[in-house]
């Protein structure tokens, strides 16, 4: 029982750290004119690995909701599930179109793909849609974000200050 609670706590912490990393990485990668094309492309490729870890950590929720989605599930879970699928499809389109029009990653691997205007416009469109979906995803998980940040970031910092002030008083 205690082992399961510790495992869940560790998973939640890992999830929070990875989610914050993905969020910041996407915010930087979303503006290639500011970050530069090399940073934009390599950051996006590494974000793909982080997304796989994010999906692995949410695996139980994905499986449970996939089984219940047609029958017993409330409207918020359904909206969340549909939004997550939309995000998955959009991020796949975003990554693929990005790889096809790549100027750094694919040429560095010795691959030169034939490019077209369609891929460029698809990349721009999917990036704009992704920013919207990212906002919605964050909004729907806002309560979880606030609770987890309080529990794993603010409370330990607060405890650190309270113990140090107690030490000062006793000294």
């Amino acid at each position: 029982m205690t082992e399961t609670i510790t495992k869940t706590k560790n998973q939640t912490k890992t999830k929070l750290v990875i989610d914050i990393a993905i969020f910041i990485a996407f915010l930087i990668a979303m503006d290639p004119r500011s970050s530069g094309i090399a940073v934009h492309e390599w950051l996006a490729v590494s974000a793909l690995a982080a997304i796989v870890v994010h999906l692995l950590l949410s695996w139980d929720w994905i499986m449970q909701t996939s089984r219940r989605i047609i029958g017993k599930s409330n409207s918020q879970t359904r909206i969340n599930y549909i939004l997550n699928w939309a995000m998955f499809i959009d991020v796949t389109i975003l990554m693929l179109s990005g790889l096809v029009i790549s100027k750094v990653v694919m040429p560095s691997l010795g691959i030169n793909l034939p490019q077209g205007f369609a891929w460029r416009s698809l990349h721009d469109l999917s990036a704009n849609v992704f920013l919207l979906l990212l906002g919605l995803h964050t909004a729907l998980h806002w309560n979880w974000i606030v609770d987890t940040v309080k529990r794993y970031i603010f409370q330990p910092i607060g405890r650190l200050f309270s113990t140090s002030s107690r030490k000062d008083i006793t000294a």
Partner: peptide, 28 residues
Amino acid sequence: ESRGGSGFGMLFGLVKNSVIVTMIVVLV
């Protein structure tokens, strides 16, 4: 695009996208 911007430019891009996400979060 391939050259990239300055540190300030990168910060501007980050802030701009953060504002968009924040607005969506506040609205929802």
